[in-house]
């Protein structure tokens, strides 16, 4: 894989990660029309019942994802003048995103298990999660490609 191809893959990963952050990661529906929609920067509860627990169960998953995407973007920017630094930054950013995504997928699968087990509840994976998985795979391929290109 050439440097341009690897950099392009990394760039696609960055863009997809950015887009994924505004789209739903998953949603679960419950009786009474209650729907919980989880995005990277917050959770929206539609038709929230009066007895809904106080406080916000709304982790900002977007923070680590933004950091990893920024590292990957900086790696692309640094390719022209510090290629060795760019290669390490690309590898670090992409693999950090793999780790962050691993935790997110574990949480989503747990939530799915809880929702599917409840009577009258349903669960849907969101397009944001799909994009995030694709982004992470593509960015990792680009980062690995940059290492091979260096050899």
């Amino acid at each position: 894989m050439g440097r341009a191809t690897a950099a392009a893959l990394l760039a696609v990963g960055v863009v997809l990660t950015a887009v994924a952050q505004v789209l739903p990661l998953y949603s679960s529906s419950y009786t009474g029309g209650v729907e919980v929609v989880v995005r990277a920067w917050g959770t929206t509860i539609i038709n929230k019942p009066g007895d809904w627990p106080a406080g916000e169960l709304s982790p900002t998953y977007g923070i680590p994802l933004t950091v990893t995407a920024v590292i990957a973007a900086l790696a692309i920017a640094a390719l022209a003048w510090r290629p060795e630094v760019a290669r390490y930054a690309a590898l670090g950013g992409a693999l950090a995103q793999v780790g962050a995504l691993g935790v997110l997928v574990a949480l989503v699968m747990s939530e799915r298990g809880h929702a599917v087990g409840q009577k009258g509840a349903s669960f849907d994976f969101g397009i944001g999660l799909v994009l995030l998985v694709v982004a992470t795979v593509v960015a990792t391929a680009g980062a690995v490609g940059l290492q091979r290109e260096a050899a």
């Binding site: 627990p53 169960l57 982790p59 670090g92 693999l95 793999v98």
Partner: peptide, 24 residues
């Protein structure tokens, strides 16, 4: 570097989740 970055990504996302879960 790859393993360290992945571990850091895991811990960062765990901190984000746990911080919110504990507050909740």
């Amino acid at each position: 570097l790859a393993g360290t970055a992945m571990l850091a990504g895991v811990v960062a996302m765990l901190l984000v989740y746990l911080e919110n879960a504990i507050a909740f």
